[in-house]
Structures are given as structure tokens and as C-alpha cells.
Design a protein around this nucleic acid. Structure first.
Lengths: 144, 144
DNA sequence: TACAACGTTTACGTTAACGTCAATAATCGT
DNA sequence: ACGATTATTGACGTTAACGTAAACGTTGTA
């Protein structure tokens, strides 16, 4: 088993643990996305796997990045937005301007997300109501 | 004032209150979207304003629908998804199959939304951390 | 009377985020 | 030796949700 051309390569040097690596299809399976999507994220500079020949090798860090990308997507961030966050997180502290900009951006985003939580709660409430209505109607039907 | 060709027409019959109507640009302003977008939602059968000649007249119900559309969008629903919810809500109780389907769909959506809340909380926490880092770095810079 | 303001329809353009081939290469089990 | 499997790189296609521009119709106002 574990037989593909790239071979889920493990252990580098003295097998330090945390040196686990993954193939593209392994990650695709784990997160239920297509390899195409993962390659696309790389194209957009969101993930940067190493190579073994032509094959992509994903580190644990890459895996976490992917996880973050998908999480960001789920709450409505565009890939470009996710990238700017990554970039800023990666960059060395940098100049004062960049930092205050980053802080402002985070404030902004945080507020948006809090509003989004409200929207979700509102919709959840609405759905509860609709469900109740539907259940009542269903029971009425079944009495016949 | 209040001078456009369609004229935000008020009062129908005995001015019952709640008979308030809106022009397309009024709604556009209120919800900060373009008239184009609002017309597009009509095209997709999400809103169905009446007409006064060729001009669209939006009722309070239309306004609420628009509000719901935008809320749905904000939490990541597609217009098509929003439409199916509207359709089901509008339709008479219907057959048993439809009802159980509706209930299942609501369960499904609710679970998704709950997961989405978790994602939001996670990202909010991440952002807090980044903000802290940034603030620290900023203070360090300013000590110079 | 002219033009500014608001509305209309029609239709083509745009962006994001992949999907979907096609052609090719390396490796595996049989 | 050969087909199945997993990988690669192009490159074109697709869908959603509008944007944008053109050409036009009313209405109030300077």
C-alpha cells in the first residue's frame, strides 16, 4: 500500500516528527476539495509546496494554510483577501504605516464578522419559524 | 422636493399606513446597492414590484424581501438558494414530500450556519492574536 | 425650450474560482 | 511488457452576479 509515483514521503533527516508530508490527493481527500482547486490556490500564492521532481510535496504548514484558506472561504473571504492577510502575517513587522493599516483592517474585518454572526442568528431564527410551520402543516396532513 | 417621474407614490385608497411605497433609487440608497442589482434580483424572481406605467413600484413587502436577499447574500447564500427558500415559504403547505424535504433542507442549512459561526469565532480569535502582535510591534517601533 | 434627474430596456463585458479536457510522465502490480 | 494509478502542465470553458454603456422616455425647472 501507499503506492503512488510521488509516494507520500515521510521522514527527512532524523525523522523529527512534524516532518509529515502529504501528496496533493491526500490533502484533496482530507478537505474534500479537488486537486485542481489546491493547485489553483498555489497559483494564487496561497500555498507554496516544495517539489520532488515535478511532484508537489505538502508540509504540515502547507496543510494548515490550506485549512485556513478553506475556513476563510467558508465565511465569505475572497482568495485575494485571504492572501493579503497571509502576506501581512508573514511579513516582518515592517514599517509603522503597514502596522496601523493592518490593525485598521483587522478592526474592520472583525466588525464585519460580528455583523455576519448577527445575520446568521437572524436567519437561524427565521429557519426555526419556518420549520415549526412546516412541522405543523405536516402533522395536519398526517391526521388524515 | 420629491420630484421624479415615478414619484414615490404614497397612499392607496384610504391611506391605510403600511401602504408606503418606494422607488428603485430609494431602496438602492437605503440598502447601499445599485438599481442594477435590484433589477437583477427581480430578473431572478426574488422581488416582484408592481408597475405604474413602466416604472417599478416597491411595496413594504418588496422592501423586506430585498432586505432578506441581502442578508442571505452576506452569509454566503447564492441567489438561487435564496429563491428556493422564498418559493417554499410562499407556497401553500403542499404535499408531504415537499414538507419533509423543506424540513430536511432547513436542518442541513442550520447545521451549516452553526459551523459557519464556529469558523467566524475562530477567525475572530486569530485576528485578535494578530492584532496583539501588531500592536506590540508598533509600540516597539515607537519607542525609538 | 433646453437640460438635468430619474426612470426604462437591451445587450455585451467582467471577475472570481475553479471545471474540464488533452497530452504526457513516472511508478506499480501482474 | 502492459494497463492502472497518480502525478504533471497547458489551455479553453463555465457560472454567478452584477457593471457598464447606449439609446430612449417623462417630468420639473431655469
Amino acid at each position: 500500500m501507499n503506492s503512488n509515483n510521488c509516494g507520500a514521503a515521510q521522514a527527512e533527516e532524523y525523522n523529527d516528527m512534524k516532518d509529515t508530508t502529504y501528496s496533493i490527493s491526500e490533502l484533496a481527500k482530507e478537505f474534500d476539495v479537488t486537486p485542481r482547486a489546491i493547485r489553483f490556490y498555489e497559483d494564487q500564492s496561497l500555498i507554496t509546496p516544495t517539489r520532488k521532481g515535478r511532484c508537489r510535496i505538502y508540509s504540515e504548514r502547507d496543510r494548515i494554510r490550506l485549512k485556513l484558506v478553506l475556513r476563510g472561504k467558508r465565511i465569505g473571504f475572497s482568495l485575494a483577501e485571504i492572501k493579503t492577510v497571509f502576506d501581512m502575517y508573514d511579513s516582518e513587522p515592517g514599517e509603522e504605516g503597514q502596522l496601523t493599516y493592518l490593525i485598521d483592517m483587522i478592526r474592520d474585518r472583525s466588525n464585519m464578522l460580528k455583523l455576519q454572526r448577527r445575520d446568521i442568528d437572524a436567519v437561524l431564527q427565521d429557519m426555526k419559524d419556518v420549520e415549526k410551520r412546516a412541522k405543523t402543516a405536516l402533522k395536519a396532513l398526517q391526521k388524515n
